[in-house]
Design a protein around this nucleic acid. Structure first.
Lengths: 229, 229
DNA sequence: CCAAACCGTCACGAAACGGTCAACGAACCG
DNA sequence: CGGTTCGTTGACCGTTTCGTGACGGTTTGG
């Protein structure tokens, strides 16, 4: 029922990363790993882990800085890993919103136990209406890949949903045929294909598909989404 | 630097309202409260809160209806409060554009945390004001390939838009027929073609196309754009 | 003042473009 | 393996846009 939980491990020492990955996966978690802050940020956006294990000392951006960056956009529970025990006060003092703190002398089993504890604490707050995007009469539920119009769910095909999502996330931004083909058709394909998909999407989301008010054509260029038609 | 954020709390139970107000103000928010939908609408207009906490069950207009009303004019993040947990699916299905959902058994601290989370999510996406180029009465939105005159969108053809954009980006710079032909007609074409396009453009952007004040002719050479006519 | 060069306007036809419908094949699912 | 859904392609038609030619007005320079 509940899908597998994802945990991200960030540490520049591959042996630690691998060790934790083994233990986490043994316990049924899905482990995502990164060895520096940059990689971590990218994978965080991509995989949306429910929990992050963060090494403090890393080359480049430190764990503290990364934590701050993550906190700008997310409430994900963050657990710090540290070689020494002396950093605990620092973490508190910084008010970084860390959720737990683990010294590396702890056994991997203990780390996993702490992860579980944090997730338990956060779970009850999970009956979470996922970020819903509102665009005029439409609302998109990303987690469910569902689209509603006036409260009614619309039966969209995968391509239609992908297209609509891109448009809704970038209202009034013009997308050329080439851009759309690059993004959804691996760069190969015909403008005509795009047109047909747009037409079918209109058939579903527009009140009067003959006079589209959401998906507007930009002559000779591509299409544009009007959030407030 | 950043002014205090305002949060509106709408609930018919005064004890809940006061409890949340205390916690919110403790965290540095400015709290505005209302105990029914009517009061809420009025205060919403007046105080323009950055976030709304909304009880579902209220005498008179329900939270759902109020949400719909607010959504007609605003994208403000809305968090629902509910006594029971069973309403989550309802909220999704209604496609009301709720941003989060909290059961009342949650601690006030958690409510505040959710408010912060929602505000964090919305903050970065707010400065979504597209780069606009202003030229006298005209403004160009490059991303949308749109041109406005006195706030009204002008229906321009592709060539007209391309021409106007070049001129607006280089005010008072003279462009010869040759330069324009090189740039927009692959070097082949007639001066006359340029003239006709300029005429059609004037028809749309000038107040009195007979006496153009934006697109000025430079005798024997080409054209020039006057940003401050 | 006059002629030549230049500019603006209008109308028309060709070409490009977008929308629709139907049909075919691939992928998917029991 | 049969049936269904989904994506792509082709043909057709209405619309928009664009270039051209004709004509009349304006500017320039002698």
């Amino acid at each position: 029922m509940t899908e597998r939980q994802t945990v991200m491990v960030v540490d520049d020492d591959p042996s630690i990363v691998e060790l934790l990955r083994d233990f986490l996966e043994n316990d049924g978690f899905l482990a995502v790993t990164a060895c520096d802050a940059e990689e971590a940020l990218e994978k965080f956006r991509q995989d949306e882990p429910q929990c992050v294990l963060l090494d403090i000392m890393m080359p480049g951006q430190s764990g503290f800085e990364l934590c701050r960056t993550l906190r700008e956009t997310s409430d994900v529970p963050i657990l710090f890993l540290s070689a020494r025990g002396g950093d605990v006060d620092k973490i508190r003092g910084l008010g970084l919103g860390a959720d737990d703190y683990i010294v590396k002398t702890a056994s991997p089993g203990e780390v996993v136990a702490r992860v579980k504890a944090v997730l338990r604490r956060y779970r009850p707050s999970r009956p979470h209406v996922p970020p819903m995007l509102q665009a005029g009469r439409l609302s998109l539920d990303f987690a469910a890949r569902a689209v509603y119009a006036d409260g009614r769910e619309l039966p969209l095909t995968p391509k239609e949903y992908d297209l609509l999502r891109l448009f809704c996330e970038n209202p009034r931004q013009v997308f050329t045929y080439e851009q759309l083909l690059d993004r959804f058709w691996d760069g190969v394909g015909d403008k005509h294909t795009v047109r047909v998909h747009i037409a079918r999407l209109r058939e579903k989301i527009e009140i009067d598909p003959e006079r589209p008010r959401y998906l507007a054509n930009v002559w000779g260029v591509g299409y544009r989404f009007e959030a407030k038609p």
